[in-house]
């Protein structure tokens, strides 16, 4: 919790200050998410491995935008990001290990 304490001392002058994005930023993120979803639909028609690569990039971009702006990870203490990212790394390892165990 020390990281949270440090961050709070850095950015909060009073308990009434709300950090984080405002409505115009939220609106812009929603527009970008919509465009990325349309791009995903278009990319699903690409051939083989190229489609998989493009789809993974677009999926990661969409999830990152939601986490950064809607879940405020861009604005909150880095500790929250670590609490979220470490299990994701482990999750990816679990998924890849399962494929490996199955012989793929």
């Amino acid at each position: 919790m020390a990281a949270i304490e440090k961050h709070r001392d850095d950015v909060h002058d009073t308990s009434h200050v709300h950090h984080g994005p405002k409505k115009p930023t939220y609106n812009l993120v929603f527009a970008v998410l919509t465009v990325l979803t349309l791009l995903e639909l278009a990319a699903s028609g690409l051939p083989g491995v190229l489609a998989i690569l493009v789809l993974i990039v677009l999926m990661t971009a969409k999830a990152s935008l939601v986490c950064a702006y809607y879940m405020h990870l861009k604005y909150d203490p880095p500790l929250y990001t670590w609490v979220f990212v470490v299990p994701i790394i482990m999750a990816v390892a679990v998924i890849l290990s399962l494929q490996g165990l199955a012989g793929y």
């Binding site: 919790m1 949270i4 500790l79 929250y80 609490v83 979220f84 470490v86 299990p87 994701i88 482990m90 999750a91 990816v92 679990v94 998924i95 290990s97 399962l98 494929q99």
Partner: peptide, 22 residues
């Protein structure tokens, strides 16, 4: 912070199922 810990546990739960789905 407590909610983030809960979300972290949910990540692992969904990961196991997504792994089997793939």
């Amino acid at each position: 912070f407590g909610w983030w810990l809960y979300i972290a546990s949910e990540v692992m739960l969904f990961a196991s199922m997504i792994g089997v789905m793939v």
